[in-house]
Design a protein around this nucleic acid. Structure first.
Lengths: 340, 340
DNA sequence: TTGTAAGCGTTATCAC
DNA sequence: GTGATAACGCTTACAA
């Protein structure tokens, strides 16, 4: 960044010392500046169109004004809603958001934490759910420990297995409630597009859904639980698998809305109508989907609020033990699962 | 950020000078470091878990590694897709993205540019379309001039009216093509949810759509062109207006997909079925919507690529006159506008 | 090839 | 209340 007006320029222009200029402009803590001098400085700053250099300030003050955000894919409405919450909360505190993306590679999370440490981000919000993969978890744990040793604080969204503050979404409760609600609508034969086996959020949702149905006396058979990626393509593939297998269930539960969308695509390709031929439910309540026809039955997760809560957690002054913010979920029955 | 390992620590640990440590770690331009020394330094750095301070590097080098992105709302799939492109392109160059949001207030764009100038972002991508509002444009122009005077470069997505590099989307062509395609499907009586009157993208789409129909001999009457916000709520309100008015058109064109979604919501509330009672088309081809039923007829804008192109433009070495990257659009006919 | 030292633009600690 | 001046952590002439 060549040639920018510096504080020295302003000081010179105003005929005061660097120190006074600094104090006049940021209104330093105790030290106060005589009114007429402050006036002169401010005027000079305006005349010169002076903008303080945030990097220099960060150096001198020992802390930056940026919050790091780690997502898997910002184009995914799940993450972009969370990001909206994070930017809003950061903005309220006068902080900027540094957006980083793993491009769907969970192993990159630790790399991005390192990157954000290098930027000396004040706090980091990690938006992706945890995996049941100790080598990846260990690596992330190490990166986080390292980051926190440098004075940074972290909050993650998902399972609190890393020893840091976390926003915990009531996945199990929501999935169980959903299962009971659908059972109540008369469904008996279910299939599950279950996501990756080692993905804890996927597992919580899938397991709780199955568990609730088992309790109701209509268990989901093993071969009706189809693993897949946690993405649109994953839902599509899993649904195709189900369709090829024949013996269609009455209702398919995809462990997130984006996967449900993939399933919808698969159905369309195969000429299977939703909900006429098969009912479909998702999870998350992605807002973009709220108005589509048929409206998707799902479990609402207040994603923007989750993003806000995570940011607040990450920004709160450090505590010795990890804090948890619990977020409830709520079943939303819509047209994709009509009463049978 | 208290207590981080610094380069001095590493140098001391390795028994070399600061300069040598620096050169060993970043592999300085011409100066080279003897192999054994470099080895020692790298080892010490690893042992101490040293991470360079990007802010300090930025200060010393005179340039940061961050790209600023200005959107209106990151939760809007239009912007999140662009953001995905921006992060991808930035990542390729080893740069970070600083995400800022106006929260739908166009006047805040210039404030955010100032903010990004303060961060000394290397380049800025402005994602929102331009307005026909000279006071706002002037303010933004001034902020940009100021930013560029400090050595920053800018690219915006939309109309090239600010004298900076721009990615120009073929809105008019796409809208005209769409009108002709729909006319070809047998539609004759149209209405337009036109967005804000002063919003240039909205206007381009609306005007071109109208123009093409006029040429075809089926002009859209003035009172069937309903202004509104460029948002979901805007589409919803405008559609309600249209429905209340009675005398339903055969097809409603919303100038973006998110507005079309709002229109869909309004239809549902009023018990009007799409496409049975009324056909609906949008613009942008938001990916989340590709699989919904009824699939929405729209004009595809390659948003991720637009984000990439804008970032590349902003990062390219400065040129004396504004460069333009033109992006074509493509009509996508789907079920929401069946053949009549 | 290595080291010394002068910045980079601020803030903060001192004296005055 | 104001002004030198030393940090902050790094890069990069300039010397050696």
């Amino acid at each position: 960044m060549p040639a920018s007006v510096t504080l020295s320029d302003v000081a010179r222009e105003a005929g005061v010392s660097l120190a006074t200029a600094s104090r006049a402009i940021n209104g330093s803590a105790n030290r106060t500046v005589r009114a007429d001098l402050r006036e002169r400085v401010l005027e000079a700053a305006a005349r010169l169109r002076y903008t303080p250099d945030a990097n220099a300030q960060a150096m001198a003050r020992g802390r930056t004004t940026s919050v790091g955000l780690v997502v898997h894919d910002i184009a995914d409405p799940y993450f972009s809603s969370i990001a909206a919450g994070v930017t809003r909360a950061a903005d309220r505190e006068g902080l900027q958001v540094t957006l980083t993306s793993t491009q769907h590679d969970p192993a990159r999370e630790s790399v991005l934490v390192d990157l954000l440490k290098r930027q000396r981000a004040r706090a980091i919000v990690i938006a992706g759910g945890r995996l049941d993969d100790e080598s990846i978890n260990d690596e992330l744990r190490a990166a986080l420990a390292d980051y926190r040793a440098g004075g940074g604080s972290v909050a993650l969204i998902g399972q609190p297995i890393l020893g840091v503050d976390a926003v915990v979404v009531a996945n199990a409760q929501g999935a169980a409630d959903l299962a009971r609600a659908l059972h109540g609508r008369g469904y008996r034969r279910f299939a599950i597009l279950a996501g990756p086996a080692h993905h804890l959020t996927a597992r919580e949702r899938s397991d709780a859904f199955r568990g609730a149905l088992a309790e109701l006396g209509d268990p989901v058979p093993d071969d009706a639980v189809v693993p897949s990626a946690f993405t649109h393509a994953g839902g599509e593939d899993a649904m195709h698998h189900l369709l090829r297998r024949g013996d269609l269930p009455e209702l398919v539960f995809a462990v997130n809305d984006v996967m449900a969308l993939g399933a919808l695509a698969a159905c369309r390709e195969s000429g299977v109508r939703v909900p006429d031929d098969i009912a479909l439910a998702g999870f998350d309540d992605i807002s973009t989907l709220r108005d589509v026809v048929p409206a998707l039955t799902t479990v609402r997760v207040p994603l923007v609020e989750v993003g806000i809560a995570a940011t607040e957690l990450a920004l709160a002054d450090p505590s010795d033990e990890p804090r948890l913010t619990h977020v409830p979920t709520q079943v939303v029955l819509r047209d994709s699962t009509p009463v049978r």
